[in-house]
Nucleic acid binder design. Structure first.
Length: 867
RNA sequence: GCCGAAAUGGCGGAAUUGGCAGACGCGCAUGGUUCAGGUCCAUGUACUCGCAAGGGUGUGGAGGUUCGAGUCCUCUUUUCGGCACCA
């Protein structure tokens, strides 16, 4: 690559900052060096001595168009990755493509382009965009596309492992069905009763045979682990806690009276201590017993059918919490095992079949819903918890009271509710009619999808059957049969049923056990399987023999910093935690959680709303880059708001950043000849400290400002990531240098100082504006790669102020600000504050009660309290 | 209903531990530079009274703690996000 040599510019010549010329030139240079951003090896004889830092941004879906949310997400990650590299870390900064999924099939239907072709073309397009922005990814070493067999074969491999471990299983179940996707959705993909991809589409319920992953096996660990993850936002942890929904309680069996052959009704309750207040049993309309009873009771059958329809409709519109409670008495009776009381059994529309046991004991005195229901149907209300014996004057249902104990509860009367819960659950267990139980809202992860563009599930159905497998039974393929390749030539339709089912040569195969005819599973895997473990693959992306090498993964994991949108708080972030625990138990990795720290960035909005095609407020990154340059675009994305907040895109702001970069460019080019001459005279060695000796006042002030800026930015990078204030600090520094321009031109600032200023300024720009930084580094006469330079270190001595400004308050209100020597002691400060004219004017005719001098590291302050 | 986050100029935002509220940028205004400008430079810009010097008010609202509160406490309003007959 040809180096660009420029002659010394005349001081008054106008040099224009032209990112359209600078950026493509550097991009071409960088693209020609595939190893540029590769991490050093972490195994073998040449293994890196540096501490590791795994910086990861969530991998994008290759829609073909990078949007501003991506630009921002990756600008945050890239700033961090570049900073950590300069701080001496061995940085893994990978990128890949979440490349399976429905849009490719929709595009195929629309344009008659095969999904694979469409996807790969989109990847190419987006990669061009990402390279244009100058993100420091190790493309050559890490890039993956989940739709390629080199990747998805490991999905299949993990699936087989899970089948072996009993973690993947097949069962018939009620599932969410999106008619527009023509496929099943996981619970996590249903948002407010609607499809996560089609926000207007109500999700239907269908009964289907599906593959499930037993995520519930890890429910407790997933929940408890949240308490050990301080590096994750509280918001995400709370959302996951709610999603898992652990609820401690008890199962209690109520026998159905006079029906010895009918199984007992098991209810789930979190308040077994209130069981003496139960006045009815309520069953979900779809409870197994109800299904029996409606066979012989037409009136009941009709009422139940209505309720089922109602629940279905309400669930689909997301109004399940608002439907009016009603129910129907079955005429049956159940016996409370604690006191032998006979309770009527009802069917009620507010009981959910898929939570708990689908049956409850109704305690109207202590539960709002039960109370509402009991009032409507005239069922008894019986108080069993009270602080003061029995006072019926309180508002119903009775709430929690300080010091409440059980009343009218047999041998448990007088116990506190918490202790009673323990004792009564134990009693039930000892007498064989119940036990302490934990229930979860989390359900097993349904991973079957009736779509084409996904990972084939590596299972077959043996048609004839063989020993241990009945005809049509399911058989796992051996590892040697992997990958099960997705056929390329296929007709895509949305008529329901898996498109793969129509590909005869795919479907028809032989049973790996008996060699007889077999049919392949034609459903594909949920694409969230792909993204559940991709970050492990990054550590060893070219491995053809295993999903990854454990030694490498163990070196890099956990991810030091994971960055992405909060919209994945439940979906991806819970699935990938689950996957981590599974492969830990398989012995592949040592860590139990994937990421040490998680950062959720805010959305990019425009005119107060999320950018979307339908709202017509989308700002194209390409257009921004064309007008203002990649540096200005990404830097604006970091400057306009702190990264965790929503960011309002204002084009004028991008123009402002562009102006700032132009100011830096002009400043550097103006003094670059001075710096280059100095370099030559010192043969490019480090500038010796003695060259700073005998600083002029102007030079010392500039160095002070410089080192204060270094300290500020370095600190911000280590914790809060308020890049907006980092960038503001650089702007302030540049403004100060410009303010000293006349002094510099007169020769009042040493050449070595100017060199130090400009070189350090350039280094500090690397995380935010890498193209400009590279250009300026070269202009300053440097030949090395600017982004591999060590990050500047703040010198506290140089940063120290020798004069300070001390605000003087009178009764807490600012009277004046006085200037004092930095080492002025309390006596001197007091004297100076009293000597000030403006302060004296405020004190006239008053008595001083207190004279406070506050001295903190952040500064000093005087407050005079007067009467 | 429950949980979480937030509210500061015309706008985005700053004030990290209670200590000069409004950094930095945008916008706007005035002046200058330029053949020209999505150029550049300078100055000003919270509100309010005042010609001015100078004063008063001010961080959604109401109280409180403190020498001192945008920051802490209590209550409250609004906005956004999540969960929601979860027994």
């Amino acid at each position: 690559m040809q180096e660009i040599e420029k002659n010394d510019v005349q001081a008054n010549e106008v040099v224009r900052y032209n990112p359209a010329e600078i950026e493509p030139r550097w991009q071409a240079k960088w693209d020609a060096q595939p190893e540029l951003y590769a991490a050093e090896p972490v195994t073998g004889p040449h293994k890196s001595e540096k501490p590791k830092f795994y910086c990861l941004e969530m991998l994008p879906y290759p829609s073909g168009q990078l949007h501003m949310g991506h630009v921002r997400n990756y600008a945050i990650g890239d700033a961090l990755a570049r900073f950590m590299r300069m701080r001496g870390y061995n940085v893994l900064h990978p990128m890949g493509w979440d490349a399976f999924g429905l849009p490719a099939e929709n595009a195929a239907l629309k344009n008659n382009t095969p999904p694979r072709e469409w996807t790969l073309k989109n990847i190419e397009q987006m990669k061009v965009q990402m390279r244009r922005i100058g993100y420091s990814y190790d493309w050559a070493g890490t890039e993956i596309a989940t739709c390629l067999p080199e990747y998805y074969r490991w999905n299949q491999w993990f699936f087989l492992k899970m089948v072996e471990q009993g973690l993947a299983y097949r069962r018939s179940s009620k599932v969410n069905w999106c008619p527009l996707c023509a496929t099943v959705l996981a619970n996590e993909q249903v948002v407010g009763g609607c499809c996560w991809r089609h926000e207007e589409q109500i999700v239907e319920q269908r009964e289907l045979e599906q593959w499930f992953l037993r995520i519930t096996k890890y429910a407790d660990e997933l929940l408890d682990g949240l308490d050990t993850m301080p590096g994750w936002p509280e918001k995400v942890r709370t959302m996951q806690r709610n999603w898992i929904g652990r609820s401690e309680g008890a199962h209690v069996d109520f026998r159905v009276s006079a029906m010895a052959d009918t199984p007992a009704i098991t209810v789930f309750t979190t308040r077994v201590d209130t069981i003496f207040g139960a006045t009815s049993i309520q069953l979900a309309p779809e409870h197994a017993l109800v299904k029996e009873w409606v066979k012989t009771d037409a009136r009941l059958a009709e009422a139940v059918a209505t309720m089922v329809a109602e629940q279905k409709a309400a669930r689909e519109t997301g109004d399940i919490g608002n439907i009016e409670k009603h129910g129907v008495a079955t005429g049956m009776k159940a016996i409370n095992p604690f006191n032998g009381e006979t309770l009527p059994i009802w069917v009620a529309n507010y009981i959910l079949a898929d939570y708990g046991t689908g049956a409850i004991m109704s305690v109207p005195a202590h539960d709002e819903r039960d109370f509402e229901f009991a009032t409507k149907y005239g069922l008894a209300v019986k108080r069993v918890v009270s602080a003061r014996g029995k006072e019926e004057s309180d508002a119903l249902p009775y709430g929690e009271e300080e010091g409440a104990v059980l009343v009218d509860s047999g041998e448990w009367t007088g116990e506190t509710p918490l202790i009673a819960q323990e004792k009564m659950a134990r009693y039930a267990e000892e007498h064989g009619f119940g036990k302490k139980t934990t229930t979860y809202r989390l359900k097993d992860w349904g991973v079957s999808r009736q779509r084409y563009w996904g990972t084939p599930i590596p299972m077959v159905y043996c048609e004839r059957g063989h020993e241990g497998v009945k005809a049509g039974g399911v058989v796992a393929l051996p590892e040697s049969a992997l990958p099960v390749l997705l056929p390329e030539q296929i007709e895509i339709t949305q008529e329901g049923g898996s498109p793969l089912g129509k590909v005869a040569e795919f479907v028809h195969t032989t049973c790996p056990v008996c060699g007889g005819p077999a049919r392949r599973e034609t459903d594909t895997m949920d694409t969230f399987v792909d993204s559940s473990w991709y970050f492990y693959r990054y550590t060893d992306a070219r491995n053809a023999a295993a999903p990854f090498d454990s030694e490498k993964a163990n070196h890099w994991f956990p991810i030091d910093q994971y960055i992405g949108g909060v919209e994945h708080a439940i979906l991806h972030l819970i699935y990938s935690r689950f996957w981590t625990k599974v492969i830990r138990d398989l012995g592949l990795i040592a860590n139990s959680e994937p990421a040490e720290r998680l950062f959720t960035q805010g959305m990019v909005i425009k005119d107060g709303a999320k950018m979307s095609k339908s709202k017509g407020n989308v700002v194209s990154p390409d257009l921004m880059i064309e007008k203002y340059g990649a540096d200005a675009t990404r830097m604006y994305a970091l400057f306009a708001a702190p990264p965790d907040r929503d960011l309002e895109w204002q084009e004028e702001g991008v123009a402002g950043i562009s102006r700032f970069l132009a100011r830096v460019y002009r400043l550097t080019l103006k003094y670059a000849p001075v710096v280059r001459r100095l370099e030559q005279s010192t043969h490019g060695d480090e500038i010796a400290p003695e060259q700073f000796a005998g600083q002029t006042v102007e030079g010392a002030a500039l160095l002070r400002a410089l080192h204060q800026t270094i300290a500020k930015i370095t600190e911000d990078f280590s914790g809060r990531w308020h890049f907006n204030t980092c960038i503001a600090a650089i702007m302030i520094l540049v403004n100060e240098i410009y303010a000293a321009e006349a002094a510099m031109d007169k020769g009042d600032v040493a050449a070595a100082t100017i060199a130090e200023l400009l070189r350090t300024l350039t280094l500090m720009l690397v995380p935010f504006a890498p193209f400009l930084a590279a250009e300026l580094w070269q202009e300053l006469g440097e030949r090395s790669d600017v982004f591999m330079q060590p990050w500047p270190v703040a010198d506290a001595e140089l940063a120290r102020e020798n004069e300070i400004e001390v605000p003087v308050q009178v009764n807490g209100k600012l009277a004046n600000v006085i200037k004092l020597a930095a080492d002025a002691d309390e006596v001197a400060i007091k004297a100076a504050s009293l000597a000030d004219e403006k302060v004296a004017a405020r004190l006239a005719g008053k008595t001083i009660v207190k004279h406070l001098v506050i001295d903190k590291s952040s500064g000093k302050l005087v407050n005079l309290v007067v009467k």
